[in-house]
Amino acid sequence: MTTTTAEPGTVAPVKQKNKSDVQGSGRLAAVLLSPTFLVLALVVGYPIIDALRESMYQRSNGLDANGFVVKGDKFVGLKNYTDILTGDASHAFWNAFYNTTFFTVVGVLIETILGVAMALVMHQAFRGRGFVRASILVPWAIPTAVSALLWRWVFQADGVANAMIGHQVLWTTEGFHAKVAVLIADTWKTAPFVGLLVLAGLQLIPAEVYEAAKVDGAGTWYTFRKITLPLIKPVLLVAVLFRLLDVLRFFDLPFVLIGAHKDSVETLSMLAYDEASNLRYGPAAAYATILFVYVAVVAYAFVKLLGADIIGEARSRKKTAAKRAKKGPRAAREATA
């Protein structure tokens, strides 16, 4: 265990060791990082490049006289993009853009709050905790396509949802209620994901920290805000980031629950799929690329605003926090020894 006091004699050798580390490990880095690189390049990298290339082309002619597909792709530059943003399709695009943003902001907010709350409950010791944990987490394990069908069944005209609220709402028709149906189904399915991650983060907090806070007379809310939240922040940020990325690419749930071509719930991902399934690969790829740019901007903003330290600097800060946390009990043990 290195001491926190900056003593010149102890710092120097550590520094040297780090330097030689960097020099000697270039090959090691390559060996350890390249599998990740390779797999991602193969399965994700190539299709991305393919999509980017495709987005510059348009199918010039569909079928020939005999009804066979004629392969004739025409280079059109950025026309696919300008068509989407300003052309006839722009209404559909901006509507989908709004829906995607709405689902992202509202959905992730609800899921995060609920997920953290669920994790806090799951973390407590009480009888039947294992059962509660399992039952909360299992919705996450149901394939989205299936859970969307389950919710379609629940939300149908004479389904359970209407029976419970006591009057008829046509949930799967156009209107704000369709958004609500999608949000309920999505929260049911994904809040457990946030809960699971936060729960794992809670396990990392040593019990002594809470006991110390208790001794100091800190209240529940204060403890949560000043101890729990900062310590689970790294895990929570990763969870929220991945939820953001996921919901921005929202597809199967609204697609199966409500259906295609519904203005109330159509997302950018659904537009891309719709174009692709009509064999208009060019516009489909253009939608996908715009969506990618949107996702990238959101992710970048998120990382910059909330956790510039997600990647690296968190370590040093967390280390000191951990050290601080450990000091108490250690000192106590040393005192008794």
Binding site: L40, V44, A51, R249, A285
Partner: peptide
């Protein structure tokens, strides 16, 4: 790390064409 993350940003509905060809 960023590059790894970026691969999560493309919608599977968009990758599907390329993946199928591959």
């Amino acid at each position: 790390l960023l590059l790894v993350l970026v691969t999560q940003m493309f919608a599977p509905t968009a990758l599907v064409i390329g993946i199928y060809r591959e």
